[in-house]
């Protein structure tokens, strides 16, 4: 048994607190450094772990983004990805989650044509920039594959099916799907590795091909601005959290009592 895996990753500003220009509603990117979206690191890591565990498997990494996004594909190679694909075309710009998942699905079909049947696609539950969490399930929709989000563990996997644990607020669901399938993972699933020096050097030398809309046979009406039904009404940084209230008191009991009184006063109890 060997698995063919694709991990989808995105290059985003390397910070957890993305700043937005309130006057334009655009993400402030000046002086920003970019990296693999932190959540995507877990998707990539899970792909690499699976291929290391199951001999004969390979993991391909797919990204859509501007020319600079090539850097994260090199990083993926340095960490152990077998092949990488860069969807890079001005026609892809301004794609929303609907158009993006369509484009990714076309790319995955092309990888299947070139390299053989894909068993598993791994995405993260969301990115750290647009935070929508829609691309993974959307991609599964276009592929017409089953999918599970919030996966915190792959309990078992064969060439036919995958058993996963889904993290829910009130516990864990154990689910099973037939392959091919798509999963969106959460950070609880693993501890991402760092690249190795030798991997980094190899990655430097790798030539990374760019795929355009034409290369993947994407329908021009379904991509970019015109293929994106989403309209952004407004963008803003969430208000800063206020400092909170300090509850003073001599003893712990006294403080606890004051706290409960406060909750009652706010009608929270």
């Amino acid at each position: 048994m060997a698995l063919n895996i694709v991990a989808c990753i995105k290059q985003t500003p390397a910070t957890t607190s993305i700043q937005i220009d309130p006057s334009t509603g655009q993400i402030l990117s000046e002086g920003a450094t970019y990296a693999i979206s932190p959540f995507d690191e877990y998707a990539l890591e899970e792909g690499i772990r699976l291929k290391e565990k199951i001999t004969g498997s390979w993991v391909a990494v797919l990204t859509m983004g501007p020319p600079r996004a090539e850097e994260i594909l090199r990083e993926a190679i340095a960490r152990g990805a077998d092949s990488v694909y860069h969807l890079c075309d001005a026609a892809f710009e301004n794609s929303d989650t609907y158009a993006t998942s369509y484009i990714l699905s076309k790319a995955i079909r092309k990888i299947q044509q070139d390299k053989g049947k894909i068993d598993l696609v791994i995405c993260a539950k969301q990115t750290n920039d647009s935070d929508s969490g829609q691309v993974g399930p959307g991609l599964a929709g276009w592929l017409d594959w089953p999918n599970v989000s919030f996966v915190k563990k792959i309990a078992e996997i064969t060439d036919k099916k995958i058993g996963v644990e889904r993290m829910m607020e009130d516990g864990t669901d154990a689910l099973e799907m037939e392959l091919p399938a798509l999963i969106c993972v959460v950070k609880e699933i693993n501890e991402p590795r760092l690249p190795s020096l030798k991997g980094k050097m190899a990655a430097k030398k790798t030539a990374i091909a760019k795929w355009t809309a034409a290369d993947i046979g994407a329908d021009a009406a379904k991509i970019g601005q015109q293929g994106s039904p989403t309209a952004v009404i407004e963008r803003a940084s969430p208000p800063r959290r206020s400092g909170g209230t300090r509850i003073e008191g001599g003893t712990l009991e006294e403080k606890a009592k004051k706290f409960v009184d406060k909750l009652k006063e706010l009608k929270l109890l």
């Binding site: 590795r193 760092l194 690249p195 190795s196 020096l197 030798k198």
Partner: peptide
């Protein structure tokens, strides 16, 4: 981790 990163033999 340092070992996997190949940093012992630089």
């Amino acid at each position: 981790d340092i070992k996997k990163a190949d940093l012992f033999g630089v």
